[in-house]
Nucleic acid binder design. Structure first.
Lengths: 96, 96, 96, 96
DNA sequence: TGGCGTATCTTCTTCC
DNA sequence: GGAAGAAGATACGCCA
């Protein structure tokens, strides 16, 4: 099995584009590292900073997540309007 | 490079034990799948069930997690008692 | 009413059974982890062990097929030239 | 007071800069994903592409070393008998 | 109902 | 060694 020349070129191009993007990503990861180092050198606690960032990320994710959960319930309620799962879901919502 | 016969036997034994455990794990995964299927066949919404289970898991994990976060803050406050991070952390806690 | 109550009980039972199975699964995963650790402590290379297990698991025909695709791509990129991998790749292709 | 305020601002700035960099990183990760998808849609095998990229990235010396360890284990388990993999493994060992 | 795309869950790796 | 991210496997839902 052999690839057409044009296909080979295309493959090579994909590979190289992806490798470039990965380099960019790596460079940014380096920038982040540098930022933490810089902060550390000015007396900030890196571990605490990471915790703060994680919490802020979680807060913003949580809104989406809660919405998703709600969607699931709404869906379940819609699909099962005449089944007993409704009861239980409503209980859960009430408890939450 | 060659391994001693006894070492080869030992390696083989480890591999086989692990493979057995993985089979057991897979069997249990199958049981779980069957349970979901059974529930589905009785009219329950599988996705909603998964969400509920995830929430219950999270609830129990969250207690530990919250404790961990608190520990980090306490640690950070202790380590940084004379730095301004304290202020901000306290702000964050107040907001939460 | 009675139907609803019994169905709620049923749902609860499903959930609890599944949670129990997941705990078992998790316990076995822990056993596997312990086995690897034990092997590691006796000087075995865990990564190589994982590779062996994966290879044993994988269907050999599929492995060859994946290798064949890879060979074509490597060839297209000129990565096979002048390396010993060439020999083996050609053997594989011939066998396929 | 003024010092504390300025330091708080500094901390906030660090956090926001880092969060911004993390968003950029995430965006690039998305671009990479898109590239793979694009390649896939044009008929390329994504898994093989990943393998090629990993191979190009990996230091070739290290690759040989890992292969040597693996060969020893495979040999110990008798998995090399009567297969063409034997040839290549022996070549590798000789070269190492 | 059976492939196909999506999504979730798990596993593996990397970094700190 | 533990957490974060990437990769792979698996399962669900849709559409034909």
């Amino acid at each position: 099995m052999t690839l057409q020349e044009s296909t080979r070129a295309q493959l090579r191009q994909f590979i190289e584009q992806i490798e470039r993007l990965e380099e960019e990503k790596k460079a940014i990861a380096g920038d982040i590292k540098d930022k933490f180092l810089e902060a550390k050198c000015q007396g900030f606690d890196v571990k605490a900073m990471r915790t703060i960032i994680a919490m802020r990320k979680k807060d913003s994710n949580q809104r989406q997540e809660e919405q998703s959960i709600l969607d699931v319930y709404l869906h379940a309620l819609g699909m099962l309007a005449d089944t007993p799962l409704v009861e239980w879901a409503q209980e859960q919502e009430a408890a939450a």
